[in-house]
Simulated scan of single mutants.
Amino acid sequence: MERKVALVTGSSRGIGKQIALRLAEKGYDLVINYARSKTAALETAAELEALGSKVLVVKANVGKPEKIKNMFHEIDETFGRLDILVNNAASGVLRPLMELEESHWDWTMDINSKALLFCAQEAAKRMEKSGGGKIVSLSSIGSIRYLENYTTVGVSKAALEALTRYLAIELAPMNIVVNAVSGGAVDTDALTHFPNREEMLAEAKRRTPAGRIVEAEDLANTAMFLLSDDASMIRGQTIVVDGGITLLV
């Protein structure tokens, strides 16, 4: 029986890597996408191959539609199919609102929201041929709550969540299930770019009703549920995984 294939964007490390490892354990072959760290991507690929997966490593800035098309061409040549898309790659300029420039806005929106549209279009064409598939994106609570220096990212994630709803409806006739996972503050490599990282983590831990901050594994757990057949009737939703912090006023 032909093995199923999953693409996880931005999967050389962090949450994307956690999800890729879990998919490998479930028997999927993997496409590992990265933008900068080839060494980390190859190390991740080696871990996945040790779990029995065939792995394709692709360098691509998913903020550029032509790079997305090239990536999917490589997927066609290597696997000839795609069953899962995890839209995880993210970036953003972290500055006060009054210091933002057009280039900061465009860079962040391209990678965090435009990428989902064009990756989903390409993925859907492949998924339809094999009877359907699953798409899950990673968002953050900055889409619905104010976070300091987070304007560009927060707005781009809000767009991602809105697009998730539209994709869920329009791709449903192809038997494609689309959802998102939104996390609270997670101590990953991405957070090192925050100018107020230590204060943010300490405050998040203090205020979270669950008594600890969210970990990458928590988001991976929820993503894996949404990628399973058990979640087939959950459509266009953004599941918040934040230990309850957004419930507080």
Score class of each variant (00 low, 15 high):
Arg165Cys: 10
Glu128Val: 07
Val177Thr: 07
Ala50Thr: 14
Phe79Val: 14
Ala115Val: 12
Leu138Gly: 05
Lys38Phe: 06
Leu100Ile: 14
Leu160Thr: 01
Glu47Gly: 04
Asn33Ala: 11
His104Leu: 14
Ala220Lys: 00
Gly211Glu: 08
Ala89His: 06
Gln121Met: 12
Ala20Met: 02
Gly14Pro: 06
Leu191Asp: 03
Gly133Val: 11
Asp242Cys: 13
Lys26His: 13
Ala158Asp: 04
Asp189Thr: 08
Ala185Asp: 02
Ala158Pro: 05
Ile68Arg: 05
Arg126Thr: 03
Gly183Pro: 06
Val55Pro: 02
Lys134Cys: 09
Gly154Arg: 07
Met1Cys: 12
Asn179Trp: 05
Lys125Trp: 05
Leu226Pro: 01
Leu167Cys: 13
Phe194Asp: 04
Gly132Leu: 08
Ile141Gln: 02
Lys125Met: 09
Val62Leu: 13
Met233Tyr: 10
Trp107Met: 15
Leu226His: 02
Met109Cys: 09
Glu101Arg: 10
Gly154Leu: 07
Thr108Gln: 04
Ser143Met: 12
Leu226Asp: 00
Leu226Met: 10
Ala190Trp: 13
Leu248Asn: 03
Val57Leu: 14
Gly133Asp: 00
Leu201Ala: 09
Gly133Met: 10
Leu191Met: 15
Asp218Lys: 08
Ser103Asp: 15
Ser113Gly: 06
Pro209Cys: 11
Pro96Lys: 09
Arg207Trp: 03
Thr152Asp: 04
Glu198Tyr: 10
Val8Ala: 01
Lys129Asp: 05
Lys114Ser: 10
Ala162Glu: 07
Val155Tyr: 05
Tyr150Trp: 14
Ala45Asp: 04
Ala50Asp: 04
Phe118Ser: 01
Asn87Phe: 04
Leu7Phe: 13
Thr9Val: 09
Ala20Gly: 05
Lys59Arg: 15
Ser103Phe: 12
Arg212His: 11
Lys26Asp: 15
Leu100Gln: 01
Ala158Glu: 02
Leu30Arg: 01
Ala89Trp: 04
Glu66Cys: 07
Arg235Ala: 08
Leu100Lys: 07
Phe225Met: 07
Gly184Ser: 14
Leu191Glu: 03
Val240Leu: 12
Val93Trp: 00
Leu219Thr: 01
Arg197Thr: 11
Asn88Met: 09
Ser53Phe: 13
Asp229Val: 12
Lys26Ala: 15
Ser182Phe: 08
Thr108Ser: 11
Glu215Trp: 00
Pro65Gly: 01
Gly63Tyr: 09
Leu7Lys: 02
Lys69Ser: 11
Leu97Phe: 14
Val214Trp: 10
Ser140Lys: 03
Leu85Ala: 03
Arg22Phe: 07
His104Asn: 13
Asp242Ile: 04
Asp218Arg: 08
Val181Trp: 03
Ala45His: 04
Ala41Gly: 06
Ala41Asn: 00
Val153Ala: 13
Leu117Met: 09
Tyr34Asp: 01
Gly183Thr: 06
Ala220Ile: 09
Leu94His: 00
